[in-house]
Design a protein around this nucleic acid. Sequence first.
DNA 1: TGTTGAAACACTAATAAGATACAGTTTG
DNA 2: CAAACTGTATCTTATTAGTGTTTCAACA
Length: 187
Amino acid sequence: MRQRDYKMVEVVNVVASGSLGVELDLEAIAGDLDDIVDYDPDNYPGAYFRFGDSAPLITLYRTGKYIVTGASSEEEAHTTREDFLNILTDHGILPSAEDEWFRVQNYVCMSQVGENLNLSALAIGLGLEVTEYEPEQFPGLVFRPSDHDCVLLVFGSGKVIITGATSIPAADEAFDSLRKHIEDLFS
DNA sequence: TGTTGAAACACTAATAAGATACAGTTTG
DNA sequence: CAAACTGTATCTTATTAGTGTTTCAACA
């Protein structure tokens, strides 16, 4: 297998979810953990947990299900979850074994193809049925490859956002595929 | 008309780049 | 004193989980 000499994807956001397997009284929890929990059921049914100013956010629901958003690595998602579970156990909420369901649902990654791109030409080259490009609405080209389970946003600067991937290798392969397409089309 | 279901919206994180809005400052 | 300019903020696109409410469709 040939050595990769190009830039791989950089993870910028991780979304993960799990379940405590217990029904909860969010009102009581929010009252108990006033300093780290925000809860406004009139506005949204989830209770927001945040450990620090720029730390990832955990949204906890009545059913015991929860979502971690804003982590910049899978490891950070896991450590945030551990902090969350520790706080809950300290307050007498014991998660059931069902919490093994914790899993990353979405990776948002960034990369760069290393050249400025003509997005109108790229849309035609990749195929109009798999691309959306309306620069008056949004400056990025939306690429939904048929052979990869994620979506790529491609910009004129050559920067690329890969979103919807459930693993880093999947994001990397999708980006690599796009990179090869661009290489074939413009050289 | 009542029921049922589906869909869309409320929210959150993060990134890209372009338009637009508005505040504040500098210049003629 | 008004026009010009700079800086900041918010919105556009996509993705994903979750629950509650609302809206709208179809059917009996």
